[in-house]
Design a protein around this nucleic acid. Structure first.
Lengths: 180, 180
DNA sequence: CGCTAAACATGATGATGATCATGATTAGTA
DNA sequence: TACTAATCATGATCATCATCATGTTTAGCG
């Protein structure tokens, strides 16, 4: 059965969406092509009509996730509060792609790293605008420092199997960031 | 051929050592049991005399890495400088296990997460002692905030495919941490 | 209104890798 | 000095995927 152009575009979108959630939830290696296609309500055979390979899917997915979802005008303090919330920590599949996938992307293809790096650069610039500081350089420093702490704290909080320690990591980092 | 007790103990040590380096360098999934055994100068068949499974190896390796190598009396500022150095960023196989494996451990067995959490708790306590701050609570906050930033910065710096951005992430985070 | 090629489903194929089975050697012990 | 069991090497399994091959349907075009 052939499918309409809109249907095809929607299928591709659903595949990328499903892949994004699954990759964040389980990591690149633990997710199979069949898993992704099933989550997108398709069969594994249809996959290669959309992508050249699983590596290709990873790159496309990263580009798709990373470019979307950054609020244009964000307040760093407010953003940090949301980012370091328990609900964001618990929403791995829907949460920040950097926190969820940066560690894994280090071992991926150059293209995948490039996609993530592009997102990282943009994110830092976005944060710099609303960061505290007199000079542009100070703002950028605050943005990078805060961003590193946010990403690190969420990763550590997700890794900890002790709920109290996990909560504390988020809370202390929240406090630690704001007064600076 | 049977082997002397010391030889066996040494073999096990070499397996854990090799696994530690390989896991950090390539991630858990990308490393095969045969890879590890080869790096330890043994054949894959001997593996199951030492460990029950690959998952078991992961747990033992994490416990082994995490418990070792933390200086008893460290100065937080000095430690941060070393941690956020380019040489540490580039030494993935020999560098900090938290930065190298925390992101992956989230998706591992409960035992693996427990091993990492134990190391994390100990590390935070160690850092708290030398952290700046009037009260114990302030010291702990500084330790957690700094540690989150260090881990996050190294992960992001390793992920970036742009050397300049990577260097900047380390340098800015270094500056961002110290003045507080 | 037919044609053609795209889009998907189904069912291989092939490689990889974790784990097991077997056999040889010898350290440790009686 | 003989015996036993531990340790390792070699060579299977067995399951899991990524990827490919083929067939079917039909959207979109002439």
């Amino acid at each position: 059965m052939k499918i309409s152009r809109e249907q095809v575009a929607d299928n591709r979108r659903r595949i990328l969406e499903a892949a994004g959630r699954l990759f964040r939830a389980k990591g690149f290696e633990a997710v199979t092509v069949a898993d992704v296609m099933k989550a997108a309500s398709l069969t594994h055979g249809a996959f290669y009509g959309h992508f050249n390979s699983k590596d290709d899917l990873i790159v496309q997915t990263l580009a798709h996730i990373v470019s979307a979802g950054i609020p244009e005008d964000l307040d760093l303090t407010r953003y940090a509060t949301t980012y370091l919330s328990e609900s964001h920590r618990d929403d791995i599949a829907g949460g920040c792609a950097t926190a969820g996938l940066a560690g894994q992307t280090i071992h991926q293809s150059p293209e995948a790293r490039a996609a993530m790096t592009a997102g990282l650069r943009e994110h830092i610039e976005r944060l710099s605008r609303s960061a505290p500081g007199a000079t542009a350089e100070n703002k950028r420093r605050a943005a990078i420092g805060s961003w590193a702490a946010m990403v690190g704290a969420v990763i550590l909080a997700r890794m900890s199997d002790d709920p109290n320690l996990s909560d504390e990591l988020l809370a202390q980092t929240r406090e630690w960031i704001s007064p600076k």
